[in-house]
């Protein structure tokens, strides 16, 4: 009986010891991994930081303007008449007989009409040059 108890104790101690060391080594390995990851994060953050500065430099307004003039010659600054307040846009009518464009307020209409024929090259950037820019105003 006594021998059995001792044997059980020894086995338990060995198991606990094994578990303890196993976990300990695991933790150590994970900590090493963590340190590596943290190091990586640090490097990534430094790179992101530098890229942010780079982005600010590449997106500075005068540069964008230069590029815009070169590659988007038909685009121009937003004119006051192109801005509408969101409240000024009427709700869509359910009546299918009424064309959708008729729902747009009158002032923008002649603008769109005269812009299209007068500037045939605008077709190149057709998808981008929307005649009416809807901007939610802060009023």
């Amino acid at each position: 009986m006594r021998a059995l108890v001792i044997a059980v104790w020894i086995v338990m101690v060995m198991m606990t010891g094994y578990a303890l060391f196993h976990i300990s080594f695991q933790v150590e390995a994970l900590e090493g991994q963590l340190a590596e990851l943290n190091q990586q994060i640090r490097q990534e953050q430094e790179v992101i930081h530098n890229l942010r500065a780079e982005w600010a430099y590449s997106s500075r307004p005068d540069w964008i303007e230069t590029m815009g003039a070169e590659f988007l010659p038909d685009m121009h600054g937003v004119e006051p008449s192109q801005v509408l307040r969101i409240e000024d846009i009427p709700f869509r009518r359910d009546d299918p007989a009424v064309p959708e464009t008729a729902a747009l307020p009158a002032p923008s209409q002649p603008k769109a009409a005269e812009a299209a024929p007068a500037n045939p090259s605008a077709k190149a950037v057709k998808g981008m040059a929307t005649p009416v820019t809807l901007v939610r105003t802060q009023q």
Partner: peptide
């Protein structure tokens, strides 16, 4: 004025 109104999205007034 004209340039910043476009940026700020100031709605035109009749």
């Amino acid at each position: 004025v004209e340039r910043i109104a476009g940026i700020a999205g100031i709605a035109p007034i009749e």
